[in-house]
Design a protein around this nucleic acid. Structure first.
Lengths: 198, 198
DNA sequence: TAACAAGTTGACCGCCCGGTCCGTTTGGCT
DNA sequence: AGCCAAACGGACCGGGCGGTCAACTTGTTA
């Protein structure tokens, strides 16, 4: 049998796999990366052993969920890459990004970075797409010049994190903080920044 | 024996208590609120049982550390309350706040909120002082009008959090993101915010 | 339909954690 | 010095975690 030739999953296995991924996505989103495998399995309606048959490690499961998110965001960024209003495109990207990954914050940045080959690749593609969005927005004069793409990547999820501390937050309060942060990215009234970008 | 009349600690107990608090502060700052009690005890050079003699619960220990931070910040805010330049005072407060509590983020906002009476009181005093700083800065025209004190409280620690995701971050990279966020609080170029303050 | 590989399962393992307990040590008072 | 309450410390406990395994079930293929 060749390396790349993967035999198709059995029907029940494929069904279990997809409900497992869905359950893991919900559970990680709600409880963070420390959600227990047993809870995820229960939520997916499968046994704990089955989880480890599909993913050798909890970290691999998390990486699979994160990979989905990354590819989702990369597709979004690609779709916005040629928008007419580059500034609005960047804002829309940050808005959608924050909205989609409620709570599953930047863990995809460092977590399992070297563990998973595909994940590292997808992350690079996402980063490149974001950087392109930022540079177009800068060229259009919608974003200050002393900002790097990495700045946007880092600030992207701050709204969700910030909101996670208010007890009964309305579900779109994060938009308020995205608004504030995005205003900080605008050229109007920008002060020189005290430290170079990473 | 009266209620309020607390007998003084024995000399060794007082010594242990303070080194315990110091170790806990360092350990919580480095590893987050999930730092283990055993590690803290080892770092303080005392037995695990001694930790629980001083604080009945790990959460109480964390609350004590957090209380220190809160009172520290409240004193800072009080010192800046009458500064000449109200805008600079607010910026300095956020700068110092972010700098002092490297990584021990906003947990003090919700964690152990109702557990500890003193902590809740100190938190209210800190909040009031921050709100006063913000209102003075607004009156001076240094901060946009549609911002509440709570916004500043929530955004205060975002720089630290954001920076915690970059692998080998220089120790004052957070200043960059504080700069961006603070620019977002300025009146110049502010767009209307999409959601009311909490 | 018969037979087998692929898939499933929950009991089980080792580990680490917060918290308890009691035998031991030690500082303060007379 | 001698006493004792206060303080100490580490073995210990119960619980939950990630991960394993061998017995069992099921989809697929001929």
């Amino acid at each position: 049998m060749r390396e790349g030739a993967e035999r198709p999953l059995r029907a029940d296995a494929a069904r279990n796999r997809s409900s497992l991924l869905a359950a893991a996505a919900r559970e990680f989103a709600e409880r963070g990366p420390d959600a227990s495998v047993a809870d995820i399995a229960r939520r997916a309606g499968i046994g704990k052993g089955t989880v480890f048959r599909h993913f050798p490690t909890k970290e691999d499961l998390l990486a699979a969920v994160v990979l989905d998110r990354i590819e989702d965001l990369a597709a979004l960024a690609a779709r916005l890459a040629n928008a007419d209003d580059a500034g609005a495109a960047l804002l829309e990207f940050m808005d959608e990004a924050a909205g989609r990954q409620q709570q599953l914050d930047l863990s995809f940045l460092r977590e399992s970075g070297e563990v998973n080959e595909r994940l590292a690749g997808a992350r690079e593609r996402l980063f490149a797409a974001i950087i392109a969005l930022v540079e177009r927005a800068q060229a259009a004069g919608a974003v200050r010049g002393d900002i790097s793409g990495m700045d946007v990547i880092l600030l992207m999820c701050a709204p969700n994190h910030v909101v996670s501390f208010v007890p009964d937050a309305p579900p779109d309060l994060w938009r308020r903080y995205l608004g504030i942060i995005f205003d900080g990215l605008r050229p109007e009234g920008a002060r020189p920044l005290p430290h170079p970008a990473p």
